[in-house]
């Protein structure tokens, strides 16, 4: 079990985070019904997350361990709005939550995708079980292509990738009945990206 947590940021290509990459990322994600919110600071992000939960009428939420924002601040602010954000990594709590929050390592502009080292079961549960999922990334980590993401992973883990990597591109969907596109099968039906920076 390799389990170590590695920072992907030193391995980004030079072009990462360019304005046009963010624009493309946003456009591709929005085409998939993703709500994309951009904020400048950590504090703005915390505020925006509470706002979104209010907007979605969330009662119960769950977050994986967060480093880009202060989850305690969000929990307290949310509480004022009657939202119960659970930070304990509890399966039942997560399963019963309307809203899951987690952080992703990079974004991919050409696809509107977010990518994450998902070795931790909790990282996965909050993004899989609740009907709405909010992914936080840093804008500067948005790279151009899928192939770029492979290179970053190869470099960051020195050819020894973590046991579970998750690429998420918008909501869960199916077209299995009469090819009618329907969102929200086994994963979230609504996805929100918060881009910091």
């Amino acid at each position: 079990m390799n389990g170590q947590v590695i920072d992907w940021r030193p391995y980004l290509p030079k072009s990462a985070g360019k304005e046009e990459l963010y624009e493309q990322f946003k456009q591709k994600a929005e085409a998939l019904t993703v709500k994309v919110i951009r904020v400048s600071t950590k504090e703005e992000a915390e505020k925006a997350i509470v706002e979104v939960m209010k907007e979605f009428n969330v009662k119960k939420a769950a977050a994986a361990p967060l480093t880009l924002v202060n989850s305690q601040v969000i929990k307290e602010e949310a509480k004022k709005e009657g939202i119960d954000l659970g930070l304990e990594q509890d399966k039942d709590w997560i399963e019963q939550s309307d809203f899951g929050i987690s952080e992703f390592d990079i974004g991919i502009a050409e696809l509107g995708t977010v990518v994450q080292d998902a070795q931790s079961i909790h990282e996965r549960l909050v993004s899989m079980l609740p009907p709405t999922h909010l992914a936080i990334i840093e804008t500067k980590t948005i790279v151009d292509t899928f192939a770029d993401s492979l290179q970053i992973i190869q470099k960051a883990y020195n050819g020894n990738p973590p046991h579970y990597i998750a690429y998420v591109t918008g909501p869960s969907k199916t077209a299995d009945i009469e090819r009618v596109l329907t969102i929200g099968v086994h994963g979230p039906s609504k996805v929100i990206y918060v881009c910091i920076g």
């Binding site: 591709k28 990738p161 046991h163 579970y164 591109t169 869960s172």
Partner: peptide, 9 residues
Amino acid sequence: PITSYVTMI
């Protein structure tokens, strides 16, 4: 463009 999920194990 790509599936909603790509999982690498």
